[in-house]
Structures are given as C-alpha cells and as structure tokens.
Design a protein around this nucleic acid. Structure first.
Lengths: 170, 170, 170, 170
DNA sequence: CATGAATGAGGTTTCATTCAT
DNA sequence: GATGAATGAAACCTCATTCAT
C-alpha cells in the first residue's frame, strides 16, 4: 500500500495545483480531495492542514524551477543565454496562484538551493561580460516572483525588453 | 444629510482599503464596517454586495493613478520623464491587494480614461525620440499591473533597469 | 431588538444546560442552537466559542448557588443550619455535568464571591460552637464539588453522615 | 504467539489508561494505539470498538480495587480498619477519568465480586461494633464512586471526617 | 496477524447577506 | 436611514471504523 499512498499523494498535489489555479489559493479542501479522487480524510492524513499543502505545493514548484534551470544550462551555449531561457520558460509556465503562494509560504530550503544554482550562473555570466555587473541574483528572483504571479500577461515583446535591461550591452 | 452620506461612503472605502491591505481581499465585511465606524447595514446600503465594494475600490484606485499621472506631467520636463516618474510613483505607492483586485474586477471606464491619457504621453515620448517606437501603452499597463501587485518588492536599482528597456537608448 | 437578543441569550443558556445534562459536556453546538430555537450563527454571536458558553454556564451556576445560600440564610435559624441546608439543596439540585465543568472552567470571580459568603457563615458557625473549628470553607467547597458531579447518587441517608463529620458533636 | 498477544493487550490497556487520564475519556483511538506501539488495526482486533476498550479498562480497575482490598484485609487488624484503609488507598490512587467511566460503563460481574467482598467486611465490622449498623456497603460504593472521580481533591483532613460519619462512635 | 491508509459522517466555526427595530 | 441581530450555507478539521496489503 506504500505505492498506493504515494500515488494518492501525487494525485492530491496535482488536484491542488489545478484547483488553486482555477479557484484561487483558498479553493475548498473538499474540492481538492474530490478532484484527486480521495476522501477529505486522506488529504488531511497527508497534509495536516492547508498550510502544509501549500508548503508542499511551493516546494514542488521550486523543484520544477530547478529542473527548468538545469535543462536551460544543458541546452544553451553560455550562462547568460541559460539564464534568459530559464526566465522565459519559467514565466511562461508559471502557475500564477502557486507562484504567489510561494512568496508567502515559500519553501525556504528548496528556494535556497535554487538561489545557489542561479548565483553560480550569474557570476559566470558576469565573468563572461554578458551580464551587467550591477545586476544580482536577487534581481532575477524578484523578476521571477513578480512575473510568475501573472501567467500569460507577459507579451512576447515585453520580457525581452526587461531582460535587455540586465544585459551588458545596455 | 448628503454630506453625511458622502462622508460615510468615504470612510467605508478607506476602511476597506486598510482592511484588505492587512487581511487580504476577503476581509470580512463586518470588520470593514466596524473600522469605518458604521454598522454592516450601512455598508450594504452603500454597496449592495462585496463585488460593488471592490469595484468602487478599483475605480478609486484608478483615479488615484490618474491624479499621479497629472502631477507627473505637471512636474516633469517632457513626456518620457513624466511616464517614468509616474511608473515609479505608482509602483511605490501601490496597494498590492487592491491592484491585484483591479486586475480581476477592473473598473472598465476609469481604466479606459487612464489608458487614453497614457496613450497621448506615449505618442509624445515616441515623437520626441525618447521612447522606443516598438513599446506601447499596453506594455506600460502590464508593467503597472505586474509590479503594483508586489508593493515594496521592487528594489530601487531594479525598476530603472526595466524602464531602460523601454528607453530609446537601448 | 435588545429585548429579543436578551431573550435569545437566556434561551440559549437554558438549552445548553439541558443539552449538556443529557448528552454531556460536548453536546453539539448545533443541537443546542436548535433547542434554543435559533440558528448556530446566533449562538456564536453570543458565545464566540464553546469555551465561552461553558464559562457563562459556570457563572450562572455559581450564581444559582449563591441565591440558594441566601435563601438558606434567610430560612434557617443559625449559621450551621444554613450551611447544612445549603449543601443539601445544592447537592440535590446539582446538574452533574455543569458542576463538573465548573471544576475545569470555573468562573473565578463568581466563585470568589461565593467563597466569601460561605466564609462568613463558617466563621459564625464555628463561633456558635456548632461547627468543628478544624473544618474550613475549603472543605465545604470540596464537598460541593465532589457531590455535585453526581446528581442523584447521594442517598438521603448518606449526606447527613458526611455533614455530621463536620459537626461539633462528632 | 499467545504471549505476544497478551503483551499487546496489556500495553494497549496501559496506553489507554494513560491517554485517557491526560486527554479525557474520548482520547483518540489512534493516539492510544501509537502509545501502545501498535497500529490501530491491532487495537481494533483486541477491542472491537471503544466501548469494549472502556469495559476492559473498567474491569481492570475493579480488579485493582479488589487487590487493594485484599491487601488491606491482610495488613489491618480488623474489618473496619481494613475498610478505612481500603477507602483511603482507593481514593488516593484513583484515576479520575477511569473511575468516572466505570460509573457509566461499569463491569457488572467484576463489580459484583467487589461488592460481595466488601459486604462480608461490612457485616464483620458491624458485628465488631465498629461500624454503624445503619451504614451499608452501598454507602461505601457511593463514597468510592464519588471521590474516585476527583483524584487529588480530597485533602488529608477531609476524608477522615467523612469516614468518621460511618463510624460507630459518631 | 499486524499495519496504517482510506473513508466519510459529524462537529466547529465563519461570514455574506437579510431584515426587524 | 442606521443599526446590529439572525440566519444558514459552506469551509475546516477530527476521528471511529473498515479494509487492502
């Protein structure tokens, strides 16, 4: 039954993501449970209260960001390109509500790891002379946070402008 | 008695702004009423339901933005400078929750008026050769919307980078 | 509507007493409300949570004890007789569950007042040479507490034995 | 495997006693199971439902009383002294919540046995001229029940008074 | 057999809204 | 008009109990 429990946990997280995307951060727990195909009790067994569920969601979200970052690094030719690709991707894929929750709840440890990965890239990009030396990882995190809360609102033509603002050439 | 009613309306709106800033968009109506120093009944007389209150808040907020825009125009030497000053000011002064609500509820007419005022400035700034011709009023509205939802999160050093992205020189 | 509210408050307290006598200290709030002929909301408006309701019940109970004490003093010839009459009456009339709750929740101020009244009587009874000098008001409170939790369990023949234990002659 | 089962049963009963002493008669079954170091399933295998567990607890409690009675008889010089010692001991050692439960649930057969043992002693004490002839075993059971529900509340100086009430000399 | 996951009924509490005064 | 009392639907959460593994 370990496998079953695991599957249920995953289904709950997925249902929670969907429900919260649609109905906001305070989507009823019962709705989430129903969507996950489990009883409320099961939901509460896994996540003692709404806060715990939010925290798990935030952590999962940060992990997704890290994966995206890894992929960007693998796919792009240099650090700055990876950063840009990562930001673009993250902002496009972002689930507004979850990202907003991340701001409040956060997942301190996961977030810390993400920041460190980004940090290395930023230093590299600056060493490469591709990124403005007065721009910081913190700037990127702010960018992520701010835009991620508004999925779909960033026109194709807009983010480039913003990123150019961090570009060496500007 | 008209003056009384007016005063009540204003106190309610103010209380609503405060309450929502502190406790989120769904602060209890009763709390708002109490803070305004009136009974719930009075609140409901002025605003038939929560939606109406939100709409009024949004409209008021847009009006504040327009005032800020007017002041910026009066104070700054040219259109682009006025736009920059306006954005800076708006982002700093923004009430996160209200701005977020604006996104949803909006106040179509008021918003329309704001857009028109901005439009003229944008055209002027572009005619002056100070603003990128491929940047639009829509870009500015997005900028406003996105940043206004995160009061206090925009470091002094960050917004300039973004605005530079809309600058001619970039 | 003040009068109505007052009436409702009383009916709620009465319903709570009955319900708790029958179904124990954790009788459903909804049941209490229904019995009082009001909605749950009304109950919660008067008593923010179960604790508040219990506290009110405890206070009311202590007040009833004080009234009984006053009546005993008025009806009996001397202090010791009044004390005995009071204990007999209290133990008979006691609502087990409420008395038990009193132990936990108590109503510190009301209780304090009762203790003071009893104190005077005890001193008088001892001065009269009717009550053992080594018995205290505390003993009486213990007696009350202990027996009051078991309404109906004290056979007519039993309490006298106990009270005789406090009697001078013993 | 029989020994194992026995040990489990004992550990569950012990855990139940502790849990109920701390958290009241309706301590969660799951808490009890965890404290006993078993799964809920095991608990339910031994005791089909909460009632069964309570009954077992009550029976165990009565057995403890009988042991105490036996020890008192062995240690004290006469029947009345044994009775007094027994009552003192029982009241001191009593687990309030369990004793209260006993009142409701009871354990008819075990209780019956205890009553018989006490009965003999009472008759003996009365024959010895040490106990009032109009006091009964029932009185003692009431005394036990009433005081046992309030562990720690009986001051050293108080119970003697009560017992004196049953004493011949009074 | 033991385990602990799953279930869902039931209890608590909150709040938007209505309405008597 | 203003007030705040009343209502009940709806959300939260807890636990006794069952059952798959």
């Amino acid at each position: 039954m370990r496998a079953d429990a695991r599957r249920n946990r995953d289904r709950i997280l997925e249902a929670a993501r969907d429900a919260m995307a649609e109905r906001g951060m305070d989507a009823p727990m019962e709705l989430i449970a129903r969507r996950a195909g489990v009883g409320v009790g099961t939901l509460y067994r896994r996540f003692p209260d709404r806060g715990a569920l939010l925290a798990a969601l935030a952590e999962q979200y940060v992990h997704e960001l890290m994966d995206a970052l890894d992929r960007a690094v693998a796919a792009e030719p240099d650090a700055w390109a990876a950063i840009r690709a990562f930001v673009f991707h993250s902002v496009e894929k972002s689930r507004g509500a979850i990202a907003a929750a991340l701001a409040g709840t956060s997942a301190p440890q996961a977030r810390q790891a993400l920041v460190q990965r980004l940090d290395e890239l930023v230093r590299q990009a600056q060493a490469d002379g591709a990124m403005r030396p007065d721009a910081s990882t913190g700037d990127l995190m702010v960018l992520l946070k701010v835009f991620a809360c508004h999925p779909g609102v960033v026109p194709e033509r807009f983010l480039p402008l913003v990123l150019d603002g961090l570009d060496r050439r500007s």
